[in-house]
Design a binder for these strands. Structure first.
Lengths: 358, 358
DNA sequence: CAACCGATTGTGATCGCTCACAAGCCTGTT
DNA sequence: AACAGGCTTGTGAGCGATCACAATCGGTTG
């Protein structure tokens, strides 16, 4: 049987409560007593029983991070950043993969594992605005991404439109005139695809370039394979192109693959820009220019927000919507040297909390 | 206050124990009773309190997976595979990142989070054979990788020597005569680097090629950046080379970057082969040939082993050492088309369990 | 016909910890 | 000298579930 507080207390000649006080860093303990208890703990190799503590305190010390897939570099890196931020605050992260399926995403909000943790940082990909009712929950929730706006929860999102616009303008400023976009989702009005495509249109407009539907290429799921296919389609169609804005880096890397297969020189013939600035971008061949959406800041903010909610009592604080700064990083694929060539500022806004009232 | 079993019992007009029986699938319950209880559960929205159950049963239903970094694609994909396997068995995975630091890796074996879960699947990168005492633990442990052999624990490892030898022979079979290896760790006798380098030497020998130290390039941590640097060093030194065997895919992708920067054609002038077969390999430019070490099988086996240990009682079972089959996948970077060009069989062996006796 | 057996349900203790509360102790103040 | 008030430690009651054990209910069995 494992060592308990009772054993430690006995050995140190104090009450169980004093051991608890020592373990939990209660300040009013005579130094001599504390030392005696600590010695007993060390001698017996005592470790607090987390289950018992959780039962009593109604806290688990865990926060769930739900993402589509860890094998997508963006989410792997986001998970890394979230874990680091939580760690620094003494919390532990439980990662859930949803495979971007409606069923799994719904389960994350109400399934059997929901009660394993004290809060949820959730990046939905399958659920959308029609499912907003599912987001009315009675636990601390922070929503990430651009699928669901207006949910009664804190929300950390990207500067999508402004960043995409800036990226497009940047390509134009390099003298490109036929700028294609890869990864559009026709007919959709929400989500990253819609927002970034909108930014692209705004960018074209501001640069005084015409909007040509032939330059807008669909790509359903944003994977390398779909990026490669989309790019190949564009090239095979014989459309004139001198730049490509891929709506994320996976698409961009796939597109790069297809450009290479078609013997198209990057950036000589076609300049290429991605979005997300995953680590891979820096080491692609050629190194990929991209939009850094402020991933670390997103992670840190999400952790801060969820921990604040968990720690909060009394009146519900207003829901916050936070947008980190984003940056454009120009690398070889646009004929640049890896420096930041533009910053789009983010910001924070508050939304009344009483949306939660049923 | 949350709904408890007591509330459900009252509502259904049964004892608390009967509710427990229903929740846990105990078979001897009259169907009518079961229905009444289930109805009460549904009406009240009851959910079992995991903390209370954990306290009583001394089980958490969680297993830790400790890896160096999720942002390394190999480990992200391993984590994905482990979570899927655990999920299928009704278990939940808690991921820990060690950053490959000795301190964090030691913590994984004995730190504050150890007691959060029922078992550990651990892929050490900083700890080595000298630390084997740390692996004598009193909880279910499965070791992954090639840093620590002979620990009193189950062990899933790769077919390193055989696979590296086969990869080298494969390059030779394509007519390459000056095969460099990137990622060696001089002086080390354990770990992936040593084993794969040994396989490389065996491959050279069997192909009848001379071993030339000038073709063995060091690269400390196996990242893209170090791979790129190592490759650049080799090229700048003017050593004659017509093939490169990078000891993992990250190194290979970095090397590819450097080859591109030096305007060396792949596979025309230099053929390139990696190790790990991460998703990135397939979409690199050109697509990267690699050794698939059987990642999914590793994950599934690790989960099976740790769950067996957790479920086991009584006599300790002998420790098992499992090696999945590995495969060589030839893609563009060796002038091939993406098919499997070789299989190296693995196997299982048993080690007496009484090594644990103190 | 009484003992007996398996199916079904209930009882009471307990897992290890923290919480609210209380009590003792010491200091300085009036 | 009495007392307020802050430090320091202890007491007893649960948190919500499961476990070992026991009790009940029918129907069998010898």
């Amino acid at each position: 049987m494992a060592v308990t507080m009772h054993d430690v207390a006995q050995r140190a000649g104090v009450s169980i409560k004093t051991v608890s006080n020592v373990v939990n860093g209660y300040p009013y303990i005579r130094p001599a007593t504390r030392e005696r208890v600590e010695a007993a703990i060390a001698e017996l190799g005592y470790r607090v029983n987390v289950s018992a503590r959780n039962l009593r305190t109604r806290r688990t010390g865990l926060v769930t991070l739900a993402v589509p897939e860890l094998s997508l570099p963006y989410f792997a890196q986001l998970a890394d950043a979230v874990m680091s931020a939580a760690d620094a605050a003494g919390w532990t992260v439980l990662i859930e993969q949803t495979s971007a399926s409606r069923e799994r995403e719904t389960e994350v909000l109400s399934g059997r594992r929901r009660h394993l943790t004290d809060g949820l940082i959730f990046s939905p990909l399958a659920l959308g605005p029609d499912d907003i009712d599912l987001f009315t929950v009675d636990f601390p929730l922070v929503v990430l991404g651009e699928r669901v706006f207006g949910a009664p929860a804190d929300h950390v999102t990207m500067n999508n439109v402004a960043a995409a616009k800036a990226a497009t303008l940047h390509l134009a400023s390099l003298g490109r005139r036929r700028i294609a976009v890869v990864g559009a989702h026709a007919g959709q009005e929400v989500g990253s695809a819609a927002l970034r495509t909108e930014g692209y249109r705004q960018g074209l407009a501001e640069a005084g370039l015409p909007y040509d539907p032939a330059l807008v290429v669909e790509a359903g799921p944003w994977h390398r394979s779909t990026g490669a296919e989309a790019m190949a389609r564009l090239l095979d169609a014989g459309v004139e192109v001198d730049a490509v804005f891929a709506l994320n880096d996976a698409l961009a890397l796939g597109a790069l693959h297809a450009l290479h297969a078609h013997r198209v020189d990057v950036p000589g013939e076609v300049a290429l820009m991605g979005f997300d600035d995953v680590d891979d971008a820096r080491f692609a061949v050629p190194a990929l220019s991209s939009v850094d959406p402020g991933r670390d800041q997103i992670a840190q903010t999400a952790v801060d927000l969820v921990l604040q909610r968990i720690g909060a009592s009394g009146d519900p604080a207003p829901f916050r919507r936070v947008v980190p700064d984003s940056r454009i990083v120009g690398r070889e694929s646009t004929g640049e040297d890896g420096s930041v060539v533009g910053v789009q500022p983010g910001g924070t806004e508050l939304v009344a909390a009483d949306l939660t009232v049923a």
